[in-house]
Simulated scan of single mutants.
Amino acid sequence: MTNAAASDLFQPTTLGSLALPHRLVMAPMTRNRAAADGTPSQIMATYYAQRASAGLIIAEATTPNQVGQTYADIPGIYTDAHVAGWRAVTGAVAAAGGRMFLQLQHGGRVGHPDNSGLHPVAPSPVPLPEPIHTPSGAQDAVVPLEMTTADIEATIADFASAAENAIAAGFAGVEVHSANGYLLHQFLAQNTNQRTDSYGGSVANRIRFTVAVVEAIADAIGAERVGVRISPGVSVNGIDEGDTEDIYPALVSALAGKGLAYLHYVFADSEQPLFQRVRALWPGALIANPNLGWGVPLPEDGGREAAQRLLAGGADAISLGRSFLANPDLVERLRTGAPLNPVRDAHLMYVGGAEGYTDYPTLDLTPTAG
């Protein structure tokens, strides 16, 4: 890698109307540190403020309504208490010089009555093919209720309202989560969408829900404040898209003229033909999340080499997850070539408290505030 190429990560860029000081974005990561009712906690403000040197922080998956809750202690953005809790987080990040978007995620069939208090809903009554974590331990997934047209319309409205709440809470914008096996992705995939109405069957019908959610949010808060996350070919949470090579060109083309802030491509590989096709179809900023594997240690460089390949392959910014999780000062470490903290035991990602959350050391080797 040449010195000139290495510097690309640290050049400024823009996402919609938002100016970033460099191209390193903190990816959204579920951390299960909210209160039981979904209100963000003070320790979440500490955690995000520690990482405010990211060019942009995309805050963790947050539910737009109660039935969309996936797991216990996941934040929401549909009550006044949620807005107030998030306002403390965005205020702490802004005071530290950072910028934040909020990811909006409805779990669809990835949910359980013991987590949300409500029966999960989905495009079709096809259950998650694996157990789901609840406060009392892992339980078999339930068969979700098939959404009616009225349910779909209400959910679209909930997304728009949640986006308005996010702006009121101090976020610069929102990311629509249409990836990783959650509700919008369930509408895209053939195995989870078995509908015969205008939201199922053909590719044009299966992308309809995601497009409608994005349009409603853009109408509510402005298209330049809206990003969309996609994960082409990813099979997490039991997803089998069936016609990946057809879905995403159609979806990206449908969104391309709307003036959105960015498209966020998960597990990206610049050598994949589909990545290059999406890049060619998408006229705006593209955030790429490199495929660094899951359940395996991070590379020693934290993903910097993979990030540089994606920039050379057409990405405008790079999102990193676990590298930011373990290194509050990741930007400085990558800029200077300093060694990185390894990620601690995986279970610490999803339990409450400071351990494995706000206590990772910075470059001066002093633990951050717990």
Rank of each mutant, 00 (worst) to 15 (best):
M1R: 15
T2A: 10
N3P: 12
A6T: 15
Q11L: 14
Q11C: 08
P12C: 00
P12E: 00
T14L: 09
L15N: 13
A19Y: 01
A19E: 08
P21H: 06
P21C: 10
V25S: 06
R31V: 15
R31S: 09
G38D: 00
T46W: 14
Y47N: 13
A49V: 04
A49C: 00
Q50E: 06
Q50D: 08
R51P: 04
R51L: 03
S53A: 13
G55P: 05
G55M: 03
L56A: 00
I57C: 01
A61D: 02
N65H: 15
A72E: 13
D80I: 06
A84F: 12
A84D: 15
W86H: 11
R87T: 15
A88Q: 15
A95K: 13
F101Y: 13
Q103Y: 05
L104T: 05
Q105S: 11
G108R: 10
V110R: 01
N115Y: 02
A122Y: 05
S124I: 03
V126F: 08
L128Q: 08
L128N: 10
P129K: 13
T134W: 02
Q139C: 11
V142R: 05
P144Q: 11
P144H: 12
L145Y: 08
L145G: 10
E146Y: 08
T148A: 06
A150S: 14
D151Q: 05
I156C: 13
S161Q: 14
I167S: 08
G173D: 02
V174D: 14
V176R: 05
H177S: 03
A179M: 07
G181V: 03
Y182T: 11
L183F: 09
L183A: 07
L184V: 13
A189G: 06
N193K: 10
Q194V: 10
Q194Y: 13
D197T: 05
G200I: 01
S202D: 14
R208D: 04
T210Q: 00
A212P: 03
A216T: 07
A220K: 15
G222L: 05
R225F: 11
R225N: 05
V226T: 03
V228T: 12
I230H: 06
P232Y: 03
S235L: 07
V236D: 10
I239K: 03
E245Y: 12
I247R: 02
Y248F: 15
A250T: 09
S253H: 11
G257H: 03
A261M: 09
Y262R: 07
Y262P: 01
V266W: 12
D269Q: 01
D269P: 02
S270M: 15
S270H: 15
L274I: 10
Q276W: 14
R279F: 01
A280W: 06
P283L: 00
A288S: 11
N289S: 15
L292F: 10
W294Y: 13
P297C: 05
P297S: 07
G303D: 02
E305D: 15
L310G: 07
L311V: 09
G313N: 01
G314D: 08
I318G: 06
S319P: 07
L320E: 00
F324D: 04
A326F: 01
L330F: 13
L330A: 09
R333Y: 12
L334S: 06
R335M: 04
G337C: 01
N341G: 07
D345E: 07
M349R: 11
Y350C: 04
V351K: 10
G353W: 01
G353Q: 06
D359I: 02
P361S: 04
T362F: 06
L363G: 11
P367M: 11
